[in-house]
Amino acid sequence: MENDSISDAELMTRVGRGDMTALGFLAERHRGRVLALSYRLLGDWHQAEDVAQETFLRLRQAAGAYEPQSKFTTWLYRIVHNLSMDQRRKAWRSPSSLESVEAEAVAPAQEDPVEKSELAKLVQRALAELPQRQRQAVILHRYEGLSHEEIADVTGWSKSAIESLLVRAYENLRKNLLEHRDFSS
């Protein structure tokens, strides 16, 4: 496909000129990771879908002023991260959502006989029990593969704060998950 060889920065330049086909290519290329990150941060597919749509809307609005100083995906992650946190704050303000967010955080799992799925639920639960900033740091580090500098770019936190958050987060996860060592064998 022709669009596969075009860089994100080039596509953004085209979007800035009003080329909606370029926006479509970008959305097609990055929708999965946007959705996955948002889902991991929010734990809710519907909210993640909203964030994904809003992300590409913001992307279109900002395309005119876009300058490829940092990696495109880091910039994209910053939008997703900020929108997800906004969404989370909104959810906590809404009483009906509060109930469900708490319910999902405490007990995200339903019965599933597959062991891997059980382990995935265990992981989800352990992550949900982390303090919010630790959870965000781990999600960006473990699942999105971002370096400390990139996490700093996305979140606006200092590099030393990120290292401290990661150490505490992995330690908390170790305590929580390795109690269930039998799952990993």
Binding site: A36, K116, R142
Partner: peptide, 12 residues
């Protein structure tokens, strides 16, 4: 811990 965390796959 790192390996166990990998069990949570999200496919879209």
């Amino acid at each position: 811990t790192w390996e166990i965390l990998g069990a949570w796959e999200v496919s879209v």
